[in-house]
Structures are given as structure tokens and as C-alpha cells.
Simulated assay, not measured.
Amino acid sequence: MGQWQGVAEFVAVAETGSFTAAAGRLAVSVAQISRQISALEDRLGAKLFFRSTRKVVMTENGGVYYQHCRSLMDGLEEAERAISDLQSTPRGKIKMTAPITYGEENIMPLVNDFLLRYPDLELHCELSNQLDDLVTQGYDLAIRIGKLTDSAMMARKLASRTRYVCAAPDYLDRYGIPHSLAELEQHACLLGASDFWRFQEAGKSRNVRVVGRIRCNSGYALVDAALKGLGVIQLPDYYVRAFLDDGRLIRVLDHYREPEEGIWALFPHNRNLSPKIKLLVDFLTKQLAPGLSEAPNKQA
């Protein structure tokens, strides 16, 4: 057992780049992390990290040792998953992340339904629009929207979303319906975090700068402003679908609308066979887009 002492602490420091972050991941004190690393270095007779007041960097020996330890940890996790596979009920912890609004409206209600089915599962979910690194943060699963760029991840498509440009009928009666992208200059555009709206023209993507007197990083606040006739919005379908259906908002510039974007489940390569994660992803896919329930995994 002595050969395993300090290995989990070493891997956590190597992947987070911080004794404090490693302590947070393992739910132990920083002092314990430091003691275990020092004892491990003494046992190996080699320095594994360069330490300073600002950062921790692996030595060459540390890098070599990490590759072997990571393989051992992956093997141990795989062995635990194999045992879990034999259990009739999935159990253990799932750590996941999702975008704030889409997570609140679409993902978490379904995850809560999933947890009702499997009472032995424990969930830790972080709703954030920050694209955190799954491996260093210890996530089993992340929900991402749009183009995927991280080739270290496996991906499964859950659903799609569409962005609509729309406004209230009374606004369009007063100011007219825009028929071209150039006409947006004549309208009060309700802005989010970006000054640009995304379109497709003649088969090519195009970003158009828009202006307006209202800017807010809340999609719900912008929808409220549009419903009150204060301007034109561009937002994903899950913000505006109900209002488009009941006629309180009207779609415009549809012929410039971008193609649908994918909504994805991402997970690290070494965790993609976890039965509980596969069950959750299958459940989300079936609920969000039944036609995609048998879609294969792909590399991000």
C-alpha cells in the first residue's frame, strides 16, 4: 500500500498546477498535500515539482512519473467502473457542468428526473458560461453549445438550437420590418455581451455590428424589453420559442439565419465508458432529441 501513498495527491497537483486546488479536489488540507508530496519525493529520491510563491511546475522527472501515474489512476478508475457495471443500480458521484441559462431551463430539470430514478447517485453540477477544462477540474461531463474545439474530449450530440431575430408586433408596426442586414442600422437592437450578431449570407457566415441603447447580459431581460416594444433581439430558440408560438414576437430576417448549432455532451476519453455517465447522456438525448438517441460518439 505504501507505493500508492502520495500518488493521488501528486496527480491532483500535476493536473491542477496548485497545491491549494489539489487540496480542494481531494477535500483535504493543503498541509496534507504538501506532506504527501514531500514524502513521495523522499521515497523516490527525485524532485517532482519546482515550487515558487506563484506557481508549481513539474520537473522532468515529475513529467515522466505523471504519465505512469495517470495510467495507473485510469486503470484503477476503470477497475472500479467494471465493478460498478456489475451492480444493478448505478451509484457514486457525477460531477458535471453546463451553461447557465440552458442548464437552468433544459438540463437540470431532466437531470433531477434522472436522479429520481437512481437514488444512489450523487450530483455536483456547476452552471457556468466559463469553458473550464474538464480534466483539471475533475468533471465527468460537460454540456457545450456550438462549435467544438477540444480534441481531447469525446462528444455526443444531444440536440440543436437556432438563433432567431425577432421583435414585438407593435415595434414592427411603428418602425417597419427589416428586410436586409443593412437595415438593422435603422433599428433599436437589444444587445447582450457582444456588439455583433451572427448571420449567414450567400452561404457564408457573417458578423454584423449592431447598436442600441439597451445592453444586458441576461437573455430574459432582453426578451422582456422586446416584448415591451423596445427593440429587436437575436437570441436562441429556447428564450423566444413560446413567444413566437403565441405571436407576441415576430421573426424577421429568416433568410439570413445561421444553420442550427449542436448542443453536445462532452466527456474525457478515459471516462467515456462510465455506466452512470452513459446512462445520463442516453437519458438527456432521449428527452431533448429522441431522433439522436442512437447517435455515435465523436471526438471533439
Rank of each mutant, 00 (worst) to 15 (best):
D140M: 11
S88N: 09
L72D: 08
S218R: 09
V13Y: 02
D113P: 02
Q5Y: 15
V240P: 02
G203E: 09
Q234E: 13
M154S: 07
L253N: 00
M96H: 11
L235P: 04
P178G: 03
T136M: 02
H124D: 15
P99N: 12
S218G: 07
G24D: 11
L148R: 05
S151L: 10
V64E: 07
A167Y: 07
L115H: 07
E77R: 14
T59K: 00
R271D: 07
L249A: 01
L115F: 13
V223W: 04
V64M: 01
M58Q: 03
S84L: 14
A152G: 00
V240G: 02
H269E: 14
I277L: 13
E294G: 04
R209G: 01
H255M: 02
G176K: 10
R215P: 03
N112K: 15
N272A: 13
L235W: 07
V11P: 00
V281K: 08
L158C: 06
A79F: 15
S18V: 07
P119K: 12
A152H: 08
L181Q: 05
H68T: 13
C216L: 11
D132W: 09
E122N: 15
L115W: 12
G262A: 13
T16L: 00
I233A: 02
D224F: 15
A12T: 04
H124K: 15
G146H: 07
G247M: 09
Q137M: 08
L123F: 06
I107C: 05
D282A: 15
R144H: 14
A82Y: 14
D113G: 10
I250V: 13
Q287F: 08
K286V: 10
R251P: 04
L141P: 08
A202F: 14
E60P: 01
I277F: 08
L230M: 14
L110T: 13
L184A: 03
T136A: 04
I100F: 06
D140F: 13
E126N: 12
A82C: 06
G6T: 11
Q234H: 10
Q200L: 04
L273P: 01
K204D: 09
E260F: 08
S274I: 12
C125H: 11
M154H: 07
I277D: 04
V135H: 07
F196T: 07
P268H: 11
R91P: 01
H68F: 14
A98F: 13
F199W: 05
L288F: 06
E15R: 01
V64N: 03
Y102H: 05
V208C: 02
R35F: 07
S180I: 01
H68Y: 14
F19H: 03
L172S: 06
S38G: 03
L48P: 02
M153C: 04
Q3S: 13
K276T: 12
A82W: 13
F196A: 00
L184H: 03
P236I: 05
Q87Y: 14
I263S: 01
R35A: 05
I277Q: 02
R43K: 15
M1R: 06
D120I: 10
N272S: 13
F50N: 05
V57H: 00
L172A: 04
A202G: 10
P275L: 10
L26C: 09
R161L: 15
V56A: 00
W264A: 01
F199V: 08
M154C: 10
V30G: 00
L134I: 10
E60K: 08
